[in-house]
Computed example of a mutant assay.
Amino acid sequence: MTAPATTESPFTTESPYTTDTAATAVATTPAVAAVTAEEPATAPKALYVYGIAPAGIRTPRSAGVDGAPVRLVSESGLCAAVSDAPPRLRPRRRDLQAHQAVLDDMAAQGPVLPMRFAVLSPRTDTLLSQLRADAPHLTEQLEGVRGCVELNVKGTVVPGHFADLVRRDDQLRALALRTRRRPDYEANVRLGEAIALSVRREARRAAREVVDRLAPLAVRTVQGTTDDEQVLSASFLVRSGDEARFREAVAERARACGDRLALSVTGPLPCYSFVDPRPATPAGR
């Protein structure tokens, strides 16, 4: 919808429209920055915004952040789930869970564009104006995730299959033999580093195989951030009817590469990684 907040922005915190599914703060809750937002004394009617959906859904039954009741505001065939913004807003576990519970209620009824934790709008009329201005783009984004869920697959390196690596890698085997014949501290360090590198290389190869097998089962795939230990982090937009088949495929790959790569699946999640509520050219700019 809009860029980071200015005095004219409908939101009073940083833009919610960034995606990062590489981690979760609580079960099935996307990671959030440890921010503190204080409600300005001059804006008593500020709203906490959870997500946007097509108009006509029922009001989420779950209590919102800080225990506030959730309501819907509607405009141009769209609705936003909101509650009164608390005086102070921190990423406490219970509030993260409340945020997620509201989104789960919305997602159970159809497509939703999820906002990240701590997104505020200064006034109801400002939010309605933004919904009206961005309605074509928001509607297109909702249609793009209709009938789908997001599943995040992570893979971490499994240490320990050294003997098999040494047997298959000529250079590693030669280094192991030299170290055995002339053992010393530096030789052991070199061998350990070479084995660790080979283990990570094997895990990364397995991670590529996993993505190659899973991507055809998804509508879209987004790769996340990885490191030396977590060598796979990918989000998949999967049709709800294909979720069981997708999970079976993950389980099959876990059995096939379990000596190299430990796989886990998180979800279903709101489709954070596959929506961008911002129009290409923000309204009024």
Score class of each variant (00 low, 15 high):
M1G: 11
M1D: 00
A5N: 09
P10C: 11
P10D: 09
T13A: 12
E14Q: 13
P16G: 09
D20E: 13
A23M: 06
V26F: 13
T28R: 01
T29G: 13
T29K: 03
P30I: 04
P30W: 03
E39K: 13
A41Q: 10
A46I: 02
A46M: 12
L47S: 07
Y50W: 11
P60V: 05
P60E: 01
G64W: 05
G67E: 01
P69I: 03
P69N: 08
L72K: 09
S74R: 00
L78W: 01
A81M: 02
A81H: 03
A81T: 08
S83P: 01
A85F: 06
P86I: 08
P91M: 07
R92A: 14
R94H: 10
D95K: 10
Q100T: 12
M106Q: 11
A108G: 06
Q109P: 15
G110E: 00
P111Y: 01
V112H: 03
V112P: 00
R116E: 11
R116Q: 13
L120E: 08
S121G: 13
S121C: 11
T124E: 13
T124R: 15
D134I: 09
A135P: 00
G144Q: 05
C148E: 03
C148M: 08
V153F: 03
K154R: 06
T156S: 08
V157R: 02
V157Y: 01
V158C: 02
P159E: 15
F162R: 13
F162L: 12
D164A: 09
D169S: 12
R173F: 01
L175I: 02
L175P: 02
R178F: 06
T179C: 05
R180L: 14
R182S: 08
D184W: 04
Y185P: 06
A187C: 08
A194L: 04
R200N: 05
R201S: 05
A207S: 08
A207C: 08
V211K: 02
R213Y: 00
R213I: 01
A215M: 12
V222S: 10
V222R: 11
Q223G: 10
D228V: 15
L232M: 12
L232Q: 07
S233W: 01
S235Y: 05
F236H: 10
S240A: 11
D242Q: 09
E248Y: 01
A249D: 02
E252K: 08
R253K: 14
A254W: 02
V265Q: 08
T266Q: 12
L269D: 05
L269V: 06
P270S: 10
D276Y: 04
P279S: 13
